[in-house]
Nucleic acid binder design. Sequence first.
DNA 1: CGTATAATTGAGCAGCGTCAAGGGTTGTGG
DNA 2: CCACAACCCTTGACGCTGCTCAATTATACG
Lengths: 249, 249
Amino acid sequence: MPQHANTFDRHSGDSICANCSVRRFSLCEHLLVGDAGAIAGPQQLHMAAKPGQILYRAGTTLEHLPVLCEGWALRFVSLSGGRRQILSFLLPGDMMSAMSLFTGRNSASIQTITKARYCLFRRGEILRILATKDTAQADGGQFIAEQQEICEQQLTDLGRRSAQERIARLILGLARRLRHRGLQWQGEFPFPLTQQHIADAMGLTQIHVSRILKVFRKAGIMKLSHGILAMYDTLALHHIADMEPADDD
Amino acid sequence: MPQHANTFDRHSGDSICANCSVRRFSLCEHLLVGDAGAIAGPQQLHMAAKPGQILYRAGTTLEHLPVLCEGWALRFVSLSGGRRQILSFLLPGDMMSAMSLFTGRNSASIQTITKARYCLFRRGEILRILATKDTAQADGGQFIAEQQEICEQQLTDLGRRSAQERIARLILGLARRLRHRGLQWQGEFPFPLTQQHIADAMGLTQIHVSRILKVFRKAGIMKLSHGILAMYDTLALHHIADMEPADDD
DNA sequence: CGTATAATTGAGCAGCGTCAAGGGTTGTGG
DNA sequence: CCACAACCCTTGACGCTGCTCAATTATACG
């Protein structure tokens, strides 16, 4: 049970999840479909949180696995000297602590960025249900393997790429994840990260992020202000990011 | 089947694995114990490789999961401009591509550092056997979750720590992994990484690594030369690394 | 409105990269 | 046993990327 949640409701899975727009892209799809193993009723807990709220602290034990339904969140660790590293951003449909599905421990703190809704599943329950499924896609290892790949890409970004490359790749990576969940990512769309968030994720200072966004703005590539990201030239951004545009980019 | 292996033998699991000193710390322990699900005979392939050999290239499909038996190896990606990032170092007992256990794809290239021996298991076989086990420790997700945690620690190292901190942490992290496998890590012990390896892993240049190792040497903390690491002052190293010494350090 | 938070801009500096030259060690073949 | 090549490490000079410190200006929120 989260330590600082301020409101929560008990529902049967049907009432809220039935209308969930990202369900079919997430773990939930495997847990809620109406076969023998489906979770329903009191197994499931829907929670709400305000922006900036810390939901879990690093090093605690999680019996429930939280899945983000709505809003953005982040996972971070803090270290000596007030330094802070954001490990990943969480979008609707993401497991908030995929690792803890297997270990029971979550090694990073979890904090909301926007107003958020999330949903708790019992660890044991998930593992039991996934074990009954035969499809490889339903294997819990899939989800964590995917996250591992993202983490390793970020590792190379921090190790070997310039600030411009890093920021371009962060934006495009998030855009791609939004796209795969059927959320808006082109033209002007809500983008709640502050420059400080970007800095903490990419190992930079907020000041330097400001300068680089200014470069992008002057070059007519993109503009980020007031929580709205305006994309003008994705091709140029891909070029800076050292990425090939995908077919659907 | 690896592309560039130069020699290989077929054995029953008993002949080589029976004498394996790291077996009980690795995945193999769960696969080879003599119950109904044990792998034996032609399911298992022992391979050998020379130093510096590339065993698998990024982006290929792996039907067999390789496990390192002896020697050191590394996983890396190369990117434009001749840049290269080492994602992880592999020690005896490590799965060479834990991710591919679930996805079948390995996203990084794998290269030996020293002369090495490794062992191939069929993916399907592993998953089948692990599924029959009840203990949580035998869950394949455990192994990858552990790697994920290491990866995220390295992410914070590259994002927020100085070159001195990074190198100190790399050394201590490797020492800890050696210790947990019952291998030598104190006093003088074999340490096959070159300064270039360290640089590629920590996002630095070989030249800068050289300068920092000089600092450590002058300060009487440790000395690394000719493949031998001599530890003089682990406490000071922990201090530089911003780490608490463990009980058994 | 007043206050806290977020972003902008400038000046100066440090950590680390680049370029370049040289020395040590290992291994190989004559 | 020596010569040579390949590799690894060391050291110096210099420059750039990105950090620090500081002041100012939006912008959101109660």
